[in-house]
Every structure is written in C-alpha cells, then in structure tokens.
Design a protein around this nucleic acid. Sequence first.
DNA 1: GATATTTGATATGGTCAATAACAATTATCA
DNA 2: TGATAATTGTTATTGACCATATCAAATATC
Lengths: 173, 173
Amino acid sequence: MTVSKTAEKIAEKSGDATKGRKDATEAQPEALQLGELSEQLGYVLKRAQLKVFENFLRCMASLQLTPAQFSVLLLVEKNPGRNQTEVASTLGILRPNFVAMLDNLESRDLCARIRSTNDRRSHILVLTDKGKAVLTRAKKLVATKHEARLNDLLGQANREALIGMLSKIANEF
Amino acid sequence: MTVSKTAEKIAEKSGDATKGRKDATEAQPEALQLGELSEQLGYVLKRAQLKVFENFLRCMASLQLTPAQFSVLLLVEKNPGRNQTEVASTLGILRPNFVAMLDNLESRDLCARIRSTNDRRSHILVLTDKGKAVLTRAKKLVATKHEARLNDLLGQANREALIGMLSKIANEF
DNA sequence: GATATTTGATATGGTCAATAACAATTATCA
DNA sequence: TGATAATTGTTATTGACCATATCAAATATC
C-alpha cells in the first residue's frame, strides 16, 4: 500500500509537464544544499551510526538481536561470572535500564542470572547453551553480512583505520 | 531452567579474583575484557558518537544549542525560504517531530515561520537577525572548541579521511 | 466543481536514558 | 559485637526522541 502510493506520486510528478513549473526540465523540487553540515563531525557521525545500526538489524533479523543485545552476549561470553553492575557499566548502560534488557535475554533462554554464593546480593551472568549457539550464529552473520560490507566499501586498510580512529575518539575525546 | 554445572562453578569462583586481591591499599575489581566488541563497527561508532555529542553540548553550553538545533540553523541559513517539510526531511526529521523543534527555535527568536504567498499552506523558514548572530557565534565555538579537538587528536589529514569515510557510510551503506 | 494531495499541526505510543527510592545483603568501624 | 553505611538488583517515574495515524486548511488534479 505504501509502495503503490509512492509509485503513484512519482508517476504523477514525473508525468505532468503542463503545470507552471519554475523550471520545465526539473520536475522534482531541488534538493537543499547541505553546506557546512557535510563537514560537521557530529552530523556525519550520527548519520553513519544510524545507517550502520539499520543495516545491523537487517542482518540480524533472523536472530532478532539488537546491537545492544549483541554487545551484552559478546561481553558475557568473554567475561563469564561477572554481575549485572559490572556488565552494564562496561557497556555504558545504567543498572536500572539493564534489568529489562536481561529479562528479555533470559526469557529467550540466551543468558541466565545466577545468585552468587560469595555475595548473595549479586547475580552472576552466564550464557546458556542456546545463548552460546545463537551468539556463534550471530557472529557469523555480522562478519559475513555486516562487517564485510565495510571492506567492500572502504577496503581493508581504511576499515581498520576507521575503527582505530573511532576508538580513539570514544576513549580520548 | 537448565543451568550447566560449569555455571555453578563460575558462581563460586566469581568472587575469588577480587577477594583474594583485597590488600590494605586499594581493591579495584578488574575491568572487563571488551574482546571482539572493540572491533565491532556499530559499537565503536555509537560510543564515538555519544562522546562527540557530549562534547558538542559542553562547547555550546553558553548558546544552549543541541546538535540537532545547530543543524537546523545551518541548513536554514544555507537554504533560506524553504518550508518545514523540506528542511525536516533533509535532516531526517519527521514533520510532526519538527514542529516542537521549530516552536523552540522560534520562541527564542532564532528563526521565523513566514506564511508563503505562493502556497499558503506552507511556512517559509528564515533566520532572524538574532538567529544569524547566534549561528555565527556557534560556528566559531564549534570550530575552535569542538572540531579543533579532532585535529589535536587525529591530525588534519586523518580528520579529513575520517569525515570522508563516515560520509561514504552515511550515503552508501 | 468534485476529489485527491500536500502542509503544518495534534495526539499518541514506543523505545531509551536518567534519577530517586526500596529491600536484601554485605561492609565498616566505634 | 552491634549500629551505621554502602552495594546490588529492582521498581517507579520522568523526559527526550522516534514513529504512526489523523485533522483542517490550502492546493492540485481531472
């Protein structure tokens, strides 16, 4: 329905040349000049981030994993036995907001909260067997469908340079 | 719920590392290993974006301009006489969400909505004199306090390469 | 002139980020 | 030891964004 409507609009606009246009050759309204905006770090950074996340979600549609959820699984796999506070703070997630996130992952049997025997306040986080399997598949999808796209677009050397510069900004800006 | 035996061992072991290291001096829990996360494009991109926006807000504290507001002012200055729909869509802002944003800028006398004489449905956007003056100051702040920081961190050549790669991602990913 | 489309606007719901507060548990120290 | 403080996970709540549906006024289309 949306597609057909859009198609109709385009068809109509491209088909009519009778109306009093400013420029008979240009059927579409002229695009705005971005100007200095295209050189602004924050602007281009935000746009790139949105595109990358969007592509990530498409690649992971079969596994239903968001970038944030993927990062949690990766971090718990690499650091099994840490509690919620540690994992959340490492990812820049506030503890209250981490609760619902874990509820989701735990309800899907991807990770588990285990009451620590040393400190019975804290919940130790571990990946379930299913969680490990899903993460393995997720890594492959990300590598072949997502990160590989960067190599196609920038080349291996530029890709590494980009990651390096972004890391530097994230850590030292 | 099926929790493997290895998970219970982890729960017991979890406190040992930090507890055993608890000297009379300082007992810091060891930082988590980021692992593959530090190589993930989306992760490092998002972290960098947050840091950049955070720094932007600090630099613009005296003018009380957010990155989104700054982009609107820049775009309206470069393209005076365009209507709300055109400006909003260029910035990836949905028309309904653009209304409150303009209400804010207009209430601060930074820009104005003018009823178009050609199409009395649309509001033409223009910067006020105050808006032009504020934008001029904003540009200087961004250039000297914000973007200059990139040069200090990456160098001129790398900075340009970074912007170029991010633009490419934003447009072609 | 009847119908459809566009524009700005309102209302609303969803996702996140951020703060305060609470019970249970543990740490501190007088 | 016991009173007090701090920590952990949690709930509730708020505000900032993002997205969709819908509306009246104005315009375009046929």
